[in-house]
């Protein structure tokens, strides 16, 4: 039986879809068979982030309504062997699917795939409940902002109330230079407040914008800090003990190094 992981956040725009796409690609790169489900019915986006938008024939609602078979609804990614996408329907409403149907679908997929990863819609309505219905593990994505952390806190409460205890935290779009000069919440601040296990810290990185423009996962880009952070995050999902990246830029001259030493006093 494969593992079902739901990626959620409460607040929109924090990087759920990009994170989902990259974890999926990274797991496939490690040799696992992965099914990604876009649960954001009406506002599908995982297809474009992965560059698979031109290959959609059927979607999740077609599948659930019996219009097509499981294997014809899943799109195979040609770059990452073992990576498949089940796209959301674009012209339907979130209540086109029930929690029961979603749960059955994840059970069905988990028989065939090592990992089933669900990209949850923003918000805490029906789409959110559907996305959680079959989850073994939940990953909460947040950014170092008051609004995003507040929503993450609310979502953690809702996830726990459903009896799911395997919850991991991903801090996305961190800007180490702002944290250092005291103008951004630090990872420690966020962990203190949310009190769940940290599985990943992803720095703000131009390479994400570039990869997303091209419809390619950033884990495939050379020399990308965000890509490296996402690969490490994936290793932690697999239970490996990986050190967190030192995201700070190295001080540039003699005086800068001295300053960085004294700044810690």
């Amino acid at each position: 039986m494969g593992r079902v992981i739901t990626v959620t956040s409460g607040k929109g725009g924090v990087g759920k879809t990009t994170t989902t796409a990259n974890i999926g690609a990274a797991l496939a790169k490690r040799g696992f068979k992965v099914a990604l489900i876009d649960a954001d019915i009406g506002l599908r986006n995982l297809d474009v982030v992965l560059g698979l938008e031109n290959r959609i024939v059927f979607d999740i609602v077609d599948l659930i309504e019996g219009e097509c078979r499981l294997n014809s609804a899943l799109i195979r990614d040609k770059r990452y062997e073992g990576l498949y996408l089940l796209p959301a329907a674009q012209t339907r409403e979130k209540d086109a699917i029930t929690e029961e149907q979603m749960k059955d679908l994840t059970i069905e997929l988990a028989k065939e795939y090592d990992f089933v990863i669900i990209d949850c819609p923003a918000g805490i309505e029906q789409g959110f409940k559907n996305a959680l219905s079959g989850a073994d593990q939940v990953l909460i994505v947040t950014t170092p902002e008051v609004s995003a952390v507040r929503d993450a806190d609310r979502v953690i409460g809702l996830v726990e109330s459903r009896g799911i205890s395997d919850i991991g935290l991903i801090v996305n779009r961190l800007r180490p230079e702002l944290v250092e000069r005291g103008d951004m919440l630090s990872v420690e601040d966020i962990c203190d407040i949310l009190a769940i296990k940290l599985v990943g810290v992803i720095p703000e990185d131009d390479s994400i914008v570039i990869s997303t423009n091209r419809g390619e996962p950033v884990i495939g880009a050379d020399d990308s800090k965000a890509g490296k952070a996402l690969l490490n995050l994936t290793s932690r999902i697999l239970g490996e003990d990986v050190q967190f990246l030192d995201l700070k830029d190295k001080p540039k001259g003699f005086f800068a190094s001295l300053r960085s030493i004294f700044a810690q006093q």
Binding site: R150, R181, G182, D183, L185, F262
Partner: peptide, 19 residues
């Protein structure tokens, strides 16, 4: 002398508001 001059602390404000 060695500490950067522009030490700001809007992150502390954020933390307090969040709490």
């Amino acid at each position: 002398f060695f500490r950067k001059k522009t030490q700001s602390d809007s992150s502390n404000t954020a933390k307090a508001r969040l709490n």
